[in-house]
């Protein structure tokens, strides 16, 4: 297939990409610093718990501030549209989650679910992390459940993260999607195969078609 000449469709605006990369960067720093405190095999090699704790804590703070900044300063229109898209599931989405390859919109049902789970995990990580931080300052406030929740979230998000990396970096059919999150656009022929409802909607939109030049 002649893919080089295929048109480019803008998939993610700058604000969406900023949100993604803020989250991704913070997640990686938090994961590495967290695992170095959590896994004995790593902790025995790396040590330096006070430093790791400081990194972990301030990364979490920076993450929250950066997310707020993107929401405040970014283009909220596409962010709101994405939120609506993620909130709604139709019959095709349901079938997709059951394993049928039904036509999908700009985000397929799995991607929507991943977005939801990621958001929930971020909130739960924050809540349980606050308990861990404050419980160490005031031990009357300690909640052993918070520690377990933080651990479980780590395992679950690590599995999701590895799956996400596989689909976006390795699996040949889907890895072109990375372009959408780095450069903002994907090839139309690829989009037509994976997100036909989206392509159809873009092509017939009354307003200006969202075909982006690279920027």
């Amino acid at each position: 297939m002649d893919t080089a000449s295929s048109r480019r469709l803008e998939r993610f605006t700058r604000s969406e990409r900023a949100l993604h990369w803020v989250h991704a960067t913070a997640f990686c720093v938090l994961l590495v610093s967290g695992l170095c405190m959590y896994l004995p095999s790593l902790a025995e090699v790396v040590g330096r718990r006070p430093l790791l704790k400081t990194i972990h804590l301030y990364t979490a703070l920076a993450w929250a501030i950066a997310i707020l900044l993107v929401l405040l300063l970014g283009n909220r229109r596409p962010l709101r549209a994405t939120l609506r898209e993620v909130e709604y599931f139709d019959a095709d989405d349901g079938l997709w989650l059951l394993g049928q390859r039904t036509p999908q919109g700009r985000l397929n049902a799995g991607q929507k679910l991943n977005t939801i789970v990621t958001a929930v995990f971020a909130i739960l990580f924050s809540i349980s992390g606050f308990f861990l931080w404050y419980g160490e300052r005031d031990t009357t406030f300690q909640n052993p459940n918070a520690l377990l929740l933080h651990d479980w979230l780590t395992y679950a998000s690590l599995i999701l993260f590895l799956g996400h990396l596989y689909l976006t970096l390795i699996f040949p059919k889907t890895r072109h999607s990375l372009s959408g999150m780095t450069r903002g656009w994907v090839r139309e022929d690829w989009a037509a195969r994976h997100h036909p409802k989206w392509v159809a909607a873009v092509e017939t939109a009354d307003d200006e078609p969202r075909r982006a030049a690279p920027r």
Partner: peptide, 15 residues
């Protein structure tokens, strides 16, 4: 009508 594809028809707020 949306800048991105949102299939509102037959969709529910399951998300």
């Amino acid at each position: 009508r949306e800048p991105v594809s949102v299939q509102r028809q037959g969709s529910r707020l399951y998300g």
